[in-house]
Amino acid sequence: MTSQVSDAPAAGAGAAARAADLWKVYGSGEAQVIALRGVNVELERGRFTAIMGPSGSGKSTLMHCLAGLDTATRGQISVGDTALTGLDDGGLTRLRREKVGFIFQQFNLLPTLTAEENILLPLAIAGRKPDPEWYRTVITTVGLADRLTHRPSQLSGGQQQRVACARALVSRPEVIFADEPTGNLDSRSGAEILNFLRRSVTEHGQTIVMVTHDANAASHADRVIFLADGQIVDELTAPTADAVLDRIKRLDAAPVAGAAE
């Protein structure tokens, strides 16, 4: 698996993750909610993809399913060359160890560990040693060299999220999934994080999928996918913030019949 991991960041080499006819249904009978209605999507390697949509559009569900955190009701999902459908908990655990990285809105650092220990946690769990050169690169990029011995409680929100980014990057996963990574940050810290994600795609060929409802954040991506009522309704390549806002306005103006919420 190690060889695949090191091969992964080669830009443009096919899909890093894909979903085919993906359905997700919660509950049953009257309480039934359909979150995803037959989504087909392919996320290219070495690109920064943003998923946008109104609340309840299914954007978070899509990401959770792609990342193996949630199971699909129907359809095919694969990350790299691994099909997620039918994987048991052990298989999903291995997938998370080797192919997927996460960045959360709530940072989710372990308070008992220092910044450095938090960054190295996924490698420690997988029993792997960090590549020292890559580790130094990551640390320098996120600008945490002088904060490594601090505990999360001694760091600002922006610093904590940078630790979380470093944690996701350090194992060089096939895909990093970021769930509203700037949602809990002020605009300056948020911009830092976005620049930083952008650079890791451009300079290191990392694949990143980010869920956001912030047009400005989405403008850092190579491609924006718009979801509404559990379906992909639009797409934008090389977006600007204005273009994104424009599309959102159009989506709001013509709501799809029967949208969830």
């Binding site: 655990t93 998370r96 959360f104 996924p122």
Partner: peptide, 8 residues
């Protein structure tokens, strides 16, 4: 979190 980052 520890499960998300790969703990079995």
């Amino acid at each position: 979190l520890v499960r998300a980052v790969g703990l079995s």
